[in-house]
Design a protein around this nucleic acid. Structure first.
Lengths: 136, 136
DNA sequence: ATTTGTGCAAATCGTTTGCATCTGA
DNA sequence: TCAGATGCAAACGATTTGCACAAAT
């Protein structure tokens, strides 16, 4: 009885990332990388896990999200406010942010940004573009 | 015995913004709008106030920052992490962020950004560009 | 006099940590 | 076996809130 995607796929992925494929990590990876790109908060992923009968503690969800991020499987997205979003799409892209309901959307077409010279002695490490949306 | 800028200026400014010019608001406004553009956190402004012999509670600093922001005197800047920055420059501009020491710098030359069409039914409310810097 | 703001301390929110226990290699 | 992972509950930092008191109109 195989889920799609199979646990084997996830185990492979974890091993490649240098992470021990534990019960919880496999299950969370299956939720995260199962289908299309997702944006989750720790809280949201925790709830999703519980709904799917994966008993895991919130602390482990936090740990796992950070480990996945360090391993390059996830990308942390900076939005104002306290809560952190994690994006399964780790490629260099930007986001629409729906202020009304706190939803993140991937921006597929790359925005063209030309940035001024950084101050002397400094180098650009990354450019984040966040487009805030409101309902029309 | 007049400070520069004068309290009168600040009182005017507060009245125009529809805020009652109280002792604390006048003093905080003088710190914030005194000279050049500033970026502050609530904590930092609170400390600055205490150093300047303005006894004010942290709660009031938070309240005041939010009231000023609603009144359009300040602009909240979204950086990742938990703490909120407030910018005395309310014009439409963007920022350099020095990850190493958590410092914000105004970007004077406007970055040229051309953003893709927002999803149907949605309109752009604001585009935030944050350029993360590292020491070279 | 009435409305509005302030200060304190307690409450809240998202997140992290310490530590005993469990698990996978 | 034993390094590494997990779960719980307590600790945490930034922020907010409830409420009695004080100040501005």
């Amino acid at each position: 009885m195989n889920r799609v995607p199979s646990d084997e796929t996830m185990i492979e992925r974890l091993k490649l990332a240098g992470l021990r494929p534990t019960r919880q990590r496999i299950a969370l990876a299956a939720l995260l990388f199962g289908e299309c790109d997702k944006h989750v908060t720790a809280e949201a992923l925790h709830e999703e896990a519980l709904r799917n009968a994966i008993p895991v503690s919130l602390a482990t969800v936090y740990n796992t999200l950070h480990q996945f991020t360090e391993a390059g499987l996830l990308r942390a997205v900076a939005i104002e406010g306290s809560r952190t979003y994690f994006d399964t799409n780790t490629s260099n892209h930007n986001h629409f942010y729906l202020e009304a309901d706190g939803t993140l959307l991937d921006m597929h077409a790359a925005p063209a940004v030309s940035v001024p010279e950084p101050p002397p002695g400094m180098a650009i490490s990354r450019v984040d573009v966040l487009v805030r949306l409101v309902r029309k």
